[in-house]
Amino acid sequence: TEDEKKIQELLKRANGDVSKAEKLAQSQGNEELARRLREYANK
């Protein structure tokens, strides 16, 4: 999905570090994506 692409892109930029990727999403003002990242990471 589009969200998964965004999540994978963020994870790439954060070198696979979920908490960093989450902070990136939040810094972009994207709380929804940050929440999805957390769920994605907890799979």
Rank of each mutant, 00 (worst) to 15 (best):
residue 1 T to Q: 11
residue 1 T to G: 12
residue 1 T to S: 13
residue 1 T to F: 13
residue 1 T to E: 12
residue 2 E to I: 13
residue 2 E to Y: 11
residue 2 E to T: 10
residue 3 D to C: 15
residue 3 D to H: 09
residue 4 E to M: 13
residue 4 E to Q: 09
residue 4 E to W: 15
residue 5 K to W: 13
residue 5 K to I: 10
residue 5 K to H: 09
residue 6 K to L: 14
residue 7 I to K: 01
residue 8 Q to C: 15
residue 9 E to R: 02
residue 9 E to W: 02
residue 9 E to I: 04
residue 10 L to A: 08
residue 10 L to M: 07
residue 10 L to K: 02
residue 10 L to P: 00
residue 10 L to N: 02
residue 11 L to P: 02
residue 11 L to A: 01
residue 11 L to Y: 00
residue 11 L to Q: 02
residue 12 K to V: 11
residue 12 K to E: 14
residue 12 K to C: 15
residue 12 K to Q: 13
residue 13 R to F: 10
residue 13 R to G: 08
residue 13 R to E: 15
residue 14 A to T: 11
residue 15 N to W: 08
residue 16 G to A: 03
residue 16 G to F: 09
residue 16 G to P: 00
residue 16 G to V: 00
residue 16 G to H: 06
residue 16 G to T: 01
residue 16 G to S: 03
residue 17 D to E: 04
residue 17 D to M: 03
residue 17 D to G: 01
residue 17 D to F: 02
residue 18 V to W: 15
residue 18 V to D: 01
residue 18 V to E: 02
residue 18 V to K: 03
residue 19 S to D: 14
residue 19 S to L: 12
residue 20 K to V: 15
residue 20 K to F: 12
residue 21 A to H: 00
residue 22 E to R: 05
residue 22 E to D: 02
residue 22 E to H: 06
residue 23 K to W: 11
residue 23 K to R: 11
residue 23 K to I: 10
residue 24 L to M: 13
residue 24 L to D: 06
residue 25 A to N: 00
residue 25 A to Q: 02
residue 25 A to D: 01
residue 25 A to M: 03
residue 26 Q to I: 15
residue 26 Q to W: 07
residue 26 Q to F: 09
residue 26 Q to Y: 08
residue 26 Q to D: 05
residue 26 Q to K: 12
residue 27 S to I: 12
residue 28 Q to W: 09
residue 28 Q to D: 13
residue 28 Q to R: 04
residue 28 Q to I: 11
residue 30 N to E: 11
residue 30 N to T: 04
residue 30 N to C: 14
residue 30 N to V: 03
residue 31 E to A: 09
residue 31 E to D: 11
residue 32 E to R: 06
residue 33 L to F: 04
residue 33 L to K: 00
residue 34 A to I: 08
residue 34 A to S: 05
residue 34 A to V: 10
residue 35 R to E: 07
residue 35 R to M: 08
residue 35 R to G: 05
residue 35 R to S: 07
residue 35 R to T: 07
residue 36 R to W: 04
residue 36 R to C: 08
residue 36 R to F: 04
residue 37 L to W: 00
residue 37 L to T: 01
residue 37 L to A: 01
residue 38 R to N: 06
residue 39 E to C: 06
residue 40 Y to G: 05
residue 41 A to L: 14
residue 41 A to H: 10
residue 42 N to G: 10
residue 42 N to W: 05
residue 42 N to M: 10
residue 43 K to Q: 14
residue 43 K to N: 13
